[in-house]
Simulated assay, not measured.
Amino acid sequence: MTGYVIETRNLTKSFTGFTAVDDVSLQVKQGTIHALIGPNGAGKSTMFNLITKFLQPTSGNILLDGEDITRKKPSQIARMGAVRSFQISSVFPHLTLLENIRVALQRKMHNSYHFWKSETGLNVLNDEARSILANVGLEDAENNLAAELPYGRKRLLELATTLALQPKVLLLDEPMAGMGTGDVNRVADIIRRVAEGRTVLMVEHNLNVVADLSDTITVLQRGAVLAEGPYEQVSRNKDVISAYMGAAHHDD
């Protein structure tokens, strides 16, 4: 074993007349929070979709725990313990928070059809579901409909449903997108907490957001790796400052 939970080797994705990911070799160490960032059009979303198997690469390889997953399906890598949350919230709006978590717990247990069982038949999952809601600070709203939640709390519910699948690898697609400063700080604190004992790969566009959260930051530009390392190193990289941070750097 190399100690890398996720690894890409010379990964490339080309569309007609355009290369979105260009020969990227990425290594995500076990038990770390690794952020994949870059300005708009840098290729980070394409890279993330390749790793999570929602796109197939033009060339190159993707490994999960040392196993080549280049041709596997999203459902297959989820069963291997790599679970993705989406940039756009994907919860059941007309179910309560508790019911949303129970659905995710049933998926983990391969009991999908039990969704149609009576309420009393599902109560065995309530304690675990409540514990997961408490882990993301939503224990006070278990009987609220998901549709009633403000945006930031809805993203927390999505994170909770992801955690219900007990992932070894947590793949987060812009978890702070569209949030105000208060919600961003709260989500960052929760990600830091739930990352204990897990490996996290997250896509984010804002370097300042991941500054205190990430062990390693990979900066993409035009589909290629521009810089990589801890925040202290990346934030001082002249190429990153020039291509990515601009005025935001000078505001620090």
Rank of each mutant, 00 (worst) to 15 (best):
T2M: 10
F15G: 07
L122S: 05
E174P: 01
I69N: 02
Y244D: 00
D189K: 15
P175N: 10
Y113I: 12
G121S: 14
E119L: 12
D252V: 13
S75F: 14
V234Y: 00
M47G: 01
E128Y: 09
V124S: 15
S235K: 12
A104C: 04
K168G: 12
I69A: 11
Q27C: 04
S90D: 09
N49I: 08
A82Y: 01
S235E: 06
G197Y: 09
N61G: 10
L145H: 12
H34N: 07
N49F: 13
M47T: 08
N206W: 03
F18C: 10
M176S: 12
R193G: 13
V24N: 04
L26F: 04
G180H: 14
P74A: 05
P230S: 08
T8K: 00
T2Q: 14
V225T: 09
N143G: 08
A20Y: 01
V187R: 00
I37D: 05
A104S: 09
L138G: 02
V187G: 00
P39K: 09
R236F: 08
T58R: 04
L97H: 00
I101Y: 06
L105H: 01
A227G: 10
S112R: 04
L149G: 04
L105A: 06
P74Q: 07
R130N: 15
D68A: 06
F18S: 11
A20S: 11
F54A: 10
V124C: 12
R198M: 09
L26Q: 02
G182P: 10
T8L: 06
G31P: 03
L159K: 01
H34S: 12
A177E: 03
S45V: 10
L201M: 05
L145T: 13
D22F: 03
N143V: 07
L50A: 05
V187A: 08
T19D: 07
K44Y: 05
D127S: 12
L55H: 05
R130D: 15
D251K: 15
T32N: 01
V21E: 05
K117G: 11
T58K: 02
L125C: 10
Q87T: 09
T2Y: 11
T96K: 01
V124D: 15
L145I: 08
V194S: 08
A227P: 04
D215V: 09
G121W: 09
F18Y: 15
E174Y: 01
I101N: 01
V203A: 05
D189N: 13
L213W: 02
F48P: 00
S45W: 04
L213N: 04
K53A: 14
Q87V: 06
L165C: 02
L138C: 03
R222Y: 13
D22W: 02
M109Q: 07
K154S: 14
I132Q: 00
R130W: 15
R102G: 07
